[in-house]
Simulated scan of single mutants.
Amino acid sequence: MPNDADLATLAGLSLTTAYDLRGPDEITQKQDKLPAGVNYVNIPVVAGNIDEFIANVHTPEDARAAMQDGNRKNVTGVTERAGYATLLTGLTNTAGSIHPRY
């Protein structure tokens, strides 16, 4: 979470919108704090629970396979494709400075 100096830096960027691509579980674990007046938009782009995903990684081979599967889903998964389509449309239609949050 940003401290006061971080918030001052963010405020100086004249952001209009912050797009948060995390899922509900990730947001609950680490909430963001934005400067006043910044529009917050949450567009979860990963299907499933990130903690369950991580819990299934026990070896380097598991990690490699999980990353390959996740990256593949970024372009083939229904939830992921819809999320990225919403993000890109939003970025196109947002006036002013924007900040995607991954």
Results as ranks from 00 to 15, higher is better:
N93L: 14
G37Y: 03
A47Q: 14
D4M: 03
Y19W: 10
A18D: 00
M1R: 10
A55G: 09
K73A: 14
N39Y: 11
T79A: 02
N42R: 05
E80K: 06
L21F: 12
D6I: 07
T86P: 02
A5E: 03
I43Q: 06
N39H: 14
G77W: 02
D32G: 04
A18G: 09
N42Y: 00
A8K: 15
P60Y: 05
K30A: 15
G48K: 05
I98T: 12
L21Y: 14
A66Q: 02
A66K: 04
K33I: 04
N49Y: 07
M1G: 12
R64A: 09
Y102D: 11
I50L: 10
F53S: 04
L34D: 03
G37N: 02
L15A: 00
V57A: 10
N56R: 12
V78D: 12
L34R: 00
P44N: 02
Q31F: 04
K73W: 09
K30F: 08
D20M: 01
L7K: 01
L87R: 04
G96H: 00
A66W: 03
D62N: 11
A8N: 08
Y19E: 07
L21R: 09
G12E: 00
V46D: 09
A66C: 06
A65T: 13
R22W: 04
L88V: 14
L88C: 11
L10I: 02
T17F: 04
D69M: 13
S14V: 00
P35S: 03
D4P: 08
T59M: 05
T76I: 03
R101W: 09
I50D: 02
R81H: 00
R22P: 00
R72N: 15
P44E: 05
P60E: 06
H58Q: 10
P44W: 07
E61T: 14
S14A: 11
D25K: 14
T76K: 03
E61A: 11
I27T: 02
A85Q: 11
G77A: 10
K30T: 08
T16R: 10
Y102V: 12
N39S: 10
G48R: 03
T89A: 12
